[in-house]
Amino acid sequence: MPVEDLIRYFNAADTAGDSTLYVAGDRVEAWHGGLHLGSLFQPIVDLRAERVVGHQASLTVRRADGLALPADAPFASCESGTAVVHLDRLSRTLHALNFLAQQQHTGGYLQVAVHPRHLQAVSNQHGLVYEAILKRCGLGPADIVLDIDLTEIDLSGQGAQALANYRQRGYRLALREPEQALALPAVLALQPDILRIATADPAVCASAHLVGTLIEIAGINDGATFHSAQASGADLGQGHLFGPPASACRPTHKGARNPYNPLSSSGARP
């Protein structure tokens, strides 16, 4: 379905009338709560094969006068869990549409954050609505890695149930190590596909690999950090060395080739 038709469909489905998706040049933006929302994509690189295998999506926010705001500004103004869920789904729909618009030369997977308040506000069937949205875009849960910050999640109850629901629907999970980290075994017991950490650590990498979890290192901004991450056994990396967040994804294949969305260069989880 052409992007313009998808936009009309999603706008018609927004019965609350709080948001509007619209075409802005060769991209899609959204109008929500008096703010313009857009997408940026930062490449995720397989450190062993040294090629782009996915992209991390992030939100751009600007006022009507053009002033840029932090990405979490729209969420800060949400007064209810329902409002957070609506905005979070809108943001991820926006990213999916902008990712879809580039698929002639951009394959791999799309990594998108789920707001912690979303997990608290939805009692069950996590990921069901977003799966239906993705299908309208010609994507599916297998194309998506859900990026979840463990810091604000109750892993003894609803948070653990949310992760299980996402996994049952075929989404892959990237868990961000909290600042005051849980014990590594407790994190790995949640069976993340990816554990996102800030600093290369050979011991963490080895423990993760024993249970089939990949390690992603953030902040790889220079050659020294890159070689340190490789030496530690980390699998994936992000950072300005590979490219800053940008409206255009990095190419992962030529138009004549089929795109791919594995977590590793071999096409299968290690």
Rank of each mutant, 00 (worst) to 15 (best):
S207M: 06
V211S: 10
D154H: 10
T199E: 08
D154C: 15
P192H: 06
T15Q: 11
A189G: 15
A268N: 02
L40Y: 03
L163S: 12
K254Y: 02
T93M: 15
D143S: 13
R89T: 15
L119N: 09
H32M: 10
A181W: 00
H36P: 03
Y109C: 15
G34H: 05
E152P: 07
L184G: 07
A174M: 01
G54W: 03
H240L: 14
V122M: 08
N124Y: 06
G127C: 10
G239Y: 04
A189F: 02
R8M: 07
G33L: 04
Q56R: 12
Q103N: 14
L94T: 15
A96V: 10
Y171E: 11
G33D: 05
V204W: 02
G157V: 10
A224R: 15
L146N: 11
I220D: 02
G108C: 09
N261W: 14
T93Q: 15
L69C: 12
D14F: 06
P262D: 12
Y260H: 14
H105Y: 11
L97S: 10
H55C: 13
D147S: 02
H253E: 02
L146G: 12
L40I: 03
A256F: 06
L35N: 04
L67N: 08
A248F: 07
P259W: 04
Q161W: 01
G267W: 01
R27I: 06
T213K: 00
E152R: 15
T60G: 07
V53H: 00
R51W: 00
D149T: 15
I133Q: 13
Q120R: 12
D222I: 05
R172F: 09
C137D: 00
D154W: 04
T213G: 03
D72R: 12
Q168D: 10
A268G: 07
R172T: 13
Y171M: 13
T20G: 06
F242D: 04
G127I: 09
Q230L: 11
R48W: 05
A203R: 01
L40H: 06
A224W: 06
A76G: 05
L173T: 11
L90S: 07
R92E: 09
Y9A: 02
E179I: 13
C137F: 00
I148Q: 05
G17H: 02
D154R: 15
A229W: 01
N124H: 12
G255T: 11
H115S: 08
L182M: 11
H118M: 08
L59E: 06
T20L: 15
L37G: 08
L182N: 05
A164I: 11
S264W: 00
A208R: 03
Y166T: 07
L119S: 08
Q103V: 14
L150T: 13
D5F: 01
K254R: 13
V112C: 12
Y260C: 13
P251C: 07
N261R: 15
S39Y: 00
F10G: 02
S123H: 03
D235M: 01
G140Y: 05
G54S: 03
V114H: 11
G170M: 07
A248Y: 07
L59G: 14
A162Y: 09
R169Q: 13
G239T: 05
